[in-house]
């Protein structure tokens, strides 16, 4: 498989502090790779090494098969980067800034102006074109930073916590844009600590905690773990609860704001799935909602990061 980003034993020390420990990332071409981990896990440090802002203490980074930072100039012709905190020349207007970034990316003046106009509309800052960057809100700055990452139509996008400053609507809009960019065949490396966002955007995921890569692979492969806790809403929750309470394979059951939450012994999941729907049908009870209590990715995270054990 062709890897756009590949790191080998990537390690970073700050003084004696080990921030990143033997990181072996493999980002295949054309995927949306979610780099997921809690705050302080080392996501931004890794991205800074990928973008040559920091030098690895040891280890290798290859982007498009070229060594970073030795081949930085060649690599960066095809990379768009959006930092966690938007960085921009605050005294420039949006038009000036994007045109300048476009020209630094190797575009001719006319091309840079054309791209700037299109991208301002695309990210929703068209009406603010002549506003100085310092006059923008943090969400608007984030949009400008996203436009600057896209300006040279790069093959690889590296986005560090891209939705951090966006409002809920902006986040939905942004996720939609990432999905449509992925459809165009771009490889997108996106760091986040928000599981639900990664689930919506990414088809590949790398889990990082305390500088170590815990797991990586296709989301669909990683999340093939059977769920044992479910949320259920029926047209008669009382009767459904009564039925479930009598079953020996039900470990725990309680009702909360009209939703039944049930925890099933994993050894008897088959029986649960056979008997419960049959009972509902026989009693004429309609099933309104049936879903795992936690998302598959959340469960993976809890399992891999030992969250349950730590809290015990």
């Amino acid at each position: 498989m062709e890897h756009v980003i590949e790191t080998k034993d990537l390690t970073k020390f700050f003084g004696k502090r080990n921030i990143i420990y033997h990181l072996n990332l493999k980002v295949p071409k054309g995927v949306v790779y979610g780099f997921l981990g809690p705050n302080g896990a080392g996501k931004t440090t890794t991205i800074k090494m990928l973008t040559a802002a920091l030098r690895p203490t040891y280890g290798e980074i290859r982007i498009f098969g070229l060594e970073m930072p030795q081949k930085r100039v060649e690599i960066m012709k095809n990379v768009g980067y959006m930092p966690e905190v938007p960085i921009a020349y605050e005294d420039m207007t949006i038009v000036e800034f994007l045109t300048y970034i476009g020209r630094l990316s190797g575009l001719k003046k006319e091309e840079a102006i054309k791209q700037t106009k299109e991208l301002m509309r695309y990210v929703g800052v068209g009406r603010l074109a002549l506003n100085k960057i310092k006059e923008l809100s943090s969400g608007q700055k984030q949009r400008v930073a996203f436009a600057s990452a896209l300006i040279a139509d790069p093959e690889l996008l590296i986005l560090d916590e891209p939705t951090a400053n966006l409002d809920p609507l902006g986040r939905i809009e942004f996720i939609g844009k990432i999905i449509s960019l992925a459809k165009e065949g771009k490889t997108i490396f996106v760091s986040s600590h928000i599981v639900s966002e990664v689930e919506k955007m990414c088809n590949y995921v790398g889990l990082i905690n305390q500088g170590r890569l815990i797991a990586q692979g296709r989301v669909s492969e990683l999340t093939q773990i059977e769920e044992t806790e479910y949320d259920i809403i029926t047209s008669d929750n009382g009767k459904a609860c009564e039925f479930l309470r009598e079953k020996p394979y039900v470990r725990e059951i309680w009702e909360e704001e009209g939703t039944i939450r049930v925890q099933v012994d994993p050894r008897f999941l088959d029986e649960f799935f056979l008997q419960f729907p049959k009972y509902l049908t026989s009693q004429g009870i309609r099933l309104k909602l049936f879903r795992p209590h936690t998302s598959p990715l959340e469960r993976i995270l809890m399992e891999k990061f030992n969250i349950g054990e730590e809290s015990d």
Partner: peptide, 9 residues
């Protein structure tokens, strides 16, 4: 902003 320059060719 030096990082903006470093991510450019």
């Amino acid at each position: 902003t030096i990082r903006l320059l470093l991510v450019k060719p």
